[in-house]
């Protein structure tokens, strides 16, 4: 087995000069784990302005890489930089968020370092010389507890640990000048989302539809219900990928995070990537034909039924009640 140090390292993700919430979640957990391994929590911050970004993150040491090759996000260069820092320190565990950047970097770094990887973790622990993760797989329907030897790379789901524990400042800041191979990937531009006809993040009520809606024509049913409630229609990713609604209506990991007073989910299974965008809604009511759909784990109220029976009946009743 390879020799590893006691430190617990984590990757600090940022975009447009903002540290992502997930990084604070990792910081808090890394500090707790380092308490158990007897090491330090080490933040790895890569990119332009790394030092300033590191200043917000609670950790024992922040290692900053701020060279021209990593000025903008570049998966090849970033993976190279993180791998170089990790190689020099051999952390007990190296944490990433299970995010768009994490999906690029965690496997690449794990492969480069020949370290095992525990992905999709909702929980990570240290047990003796092992790293133990509890992952959420099969669209949230099954959990798996798995272990890896010390040295493992781990990706954590958003919301697995509180962010507040990770806000603060580093005990010490170091600079690292990792030589990285960046030339084969070039950052060109950051494209802002197109202006939306309706801002789903500002609605009190969202009628949200998933693949259970079956066809584009059926979306009209949801529109009618949303109108009766004075809200708007949002959707899961497959509805957007099918071209049935604009991208601005997508709720979830690669869409919008919404917090309406009421979120009515029809025919949405509740995959972790969807839940990430709506689990904090004030009231969640889910209608699904599958009694085991994970959406019922976050919903306040659930109905096991065909949405085509419930939706029109509800529209009628809402119209009647609103007079």
């Amino acid at each position: 087995m390879r020799a590893v140090a006691r430190d617990v390292a984590f990757f600090v993700e940022h975009l447009k000069g903002q540290v992502a919430d997930i990084s604070f979640e990792l910081a808090g957990r890394a500090r707790a784990l380092a308490g158990e391994t007897g090491g330090r929590s080490v933040a790895i911050v890569v990119g332009e302005g790394a030092r300033a970004l590191a200043g917000q993150v609670a950790c024992d040491v922040a290692v900053c890489v701020d060279t021209p090759e990593v000025a903008r996000y570049n998966p090849l260069a970033y993976a190279g930089a993180v791998a170089a820092v990790a190689r020099a320190r051999e952390p007990f565990a190296l944490l990433f968020g299970n995010t768009s950047q994490g999906l690029d970097l965690a496997p690449a770094v794990a492969a480069a370092l020949e370290r095992p990887l525990l992905a999709y973790c909702r929980e990570v622990r240290v047990e003796g010389e092992k790293v133990v993760g509890v992952s959420q797989v099969y669209g949230g329907k099954v959990m798996v507890e798995a272990e890896a030897p010390a040295g493992a790379v781990v990706t954590l789901m958003a919301g697995a640990y509180p962010a507040d524990a990770g806000r603060g400042a580093p005990g010490a800041v170091e600079e690292a000048a990792a030589a990285v191979d960046a030339a084969r990937v070039r950052f060109k531009a950051l494209i802002e989302p197109e202006a939306a006809d309706v801002d789903i993040t500002k609605q009190d009520v969202l009628v949200s539809i998933g693949r259970g809606i079956q066809s584009q024509d059926n979306i009209q049913l949801a529109v009618e219900l949303a109108e009766a409630l004075g809200g708007a229609v949002s959707a899961s990713r497959p509805i957007i990928d099918a071209g049935w609604l604009p991208k601005a209506r997508q709720v979830g990991k690669s869409g919008q995070t919404v917090k309406p007073k009421a979120y009515l989910a029809f025919g949405i299974s509740g995959a972790p990537e969807h839940l990430e965008g709506m689990r904090d809604a004030g009231l969640i009511i889910a209608v699904n034909t599958d009694p085991k759909a994970p959406i019922f784990d976050v919903a306040h109220y659930g109905v096991v039924a065909d949405l085509f029976d419930i939706m029109p009946a509800l529209t009628e009743k809402v119209k009647a009640a609103a007079g």
């Binding site: 996000y73 084969r184 060109k188 494209i191």
Partner: peptide, 17 residues
């Protein structure tokens, strides 16, 4: 030239050899 999606509908355009 690829479009990589981030959260919130933000997209990075990257050029890859």
């Amino acid at each position: 030239t690829v479009k990589k999606e981030f959260a919130g509908g933000l997209v990075a355009e990257l050029e890859v050899d």
